[in-house]
């Protein structure tokens, strides 16, 4: 086939593929957005474009339900999870990546294997733990339980990142008189910022979206996080599933994630590729 025909054909095939991919990825979210502006029976009509932008669903979840409180709970839990995982992850990574000690490999494998269990498998055990610790129906219980997903990847990513940092830089700092704490805060921390932003963001998303633990370990609506609250949004009667409100709430809680990713996207990319090639 002549090149003049082949080339545009290849190009249009490429863009077609991109379009299909985008459609699959974005359609559910778009449909949620459209639905969030509907109420009553119009929900069951299929519309590609929204007919108007009534904000009834948006206002009602704040007025008729304690959705603001739920958002605050989610924020508190997610931010705390990020802070705790990064602090523990960084200090753990420093020792696992830089010091040789007996059982180091075992420890890394143990950390990894924890994250392989399905959530349901640890649910009942975790429930007992949380009750014993007196953390049931509290944000602290959720923070505690979420660490079992966030710590493994935080520790692993940061450990492999720390291993990539040239050891001579650390030795130079030691020669300059840096102790372990100065080393951590003035040398490692700034160098690892991209990796920390990436892992921190992933931890935030996991904590923000988590459902099963949040459902199991909270009892009252004022302790619930957003995903559970959305699932338990009630309609006008018990026979009505309030899709409009559910969609409105979903849109609201997705916006902060999108904003975060957009703000940090350059750092995320450099964090994800960091270590692949020596800078």
């Amino acid at each position: 086939m002549p090149n003049s025909v082949w080339k545009p054909l290849k190009q249009s095939a490429f863009w077609l593929l991109v379009a299909v991919l985008l459609l699959i990825l974005l359609f559910p979210f778009y449909y949620a957005l459209v639905t969030s502006f509907k109420s009553g029976p119009s929900i069951f009509e299929v519309d590609v474009l929204p007919r108007g932008f009534p904000l009834d669903n948006y206002t009602s979840i704040f007025e008729e339900q304690s959705f603001a409180r739920n958002i605050l709970n989610s924020l508190f839990v997610s931010v705390s999870v990020v802070a705790v995982s990064l602090t523990l992850g960084l200090t753990a990574a420093m020792s696992l990546g830089r010091f040789r000690f007996r059982g180091r490999r075992m420890m890394l494998l143990a950390v990894l294997s924890v994250s392989m269990f399905p959530q349901v498998a640890v649910l009942s055990g975790m429930f007992e733990l949380i009750r014993v610790l007196g953390l049931f129906n509290s944000g602290f219980g959720l923070i505690f339980s979420y660490l079992i997903f966030t710590l493994p990847f935080t520790v692993w990513v940061l450990t492999s990142f720390i291993r990539e940092l040239p050891i001579e830089v650390e030795e130079a700092a030691i020669m300059d008189g840096a102790g372990p704490w100065t080393l951590l805060t003035r040398i490692f921390l700034p160098l690892m910022l991209p990796a920390m932003v990436t892992t921190g963001l992933l931890a935030f998303i996991v904590a923000w979206n988590e459902f099963l633990f949040a459902l199991t370990f909270t009892l009252t609506n004022d302790q619930r996080t957003v995903p559970v609250a959305i699932a338990l949004i009630t309609g006008g009667s018990e026979f009505e599933v309030p899709w409009g409100r559910i969609m409105a709430a979903s849109v609201i809680v997705t916006v902060p994630l999108i904003a975060l990713v957009l703000v940090f996207q350059r750092r995320i990319v450099s964090g994800l590729t960091a270590g692949a090639v020596k800078g």
């Binding site: 040239p166 700092a173 030691i174 020669m175």
Partner: peptide, 19 residues
Amino acid sequence: APADRQVSMVFQSYALYPH
């Protein structure tokens, strides 16, 4: 401790603080 020995070292890879 290394810092108190009154010695300085120049490393093969320069080991400058990149940030």
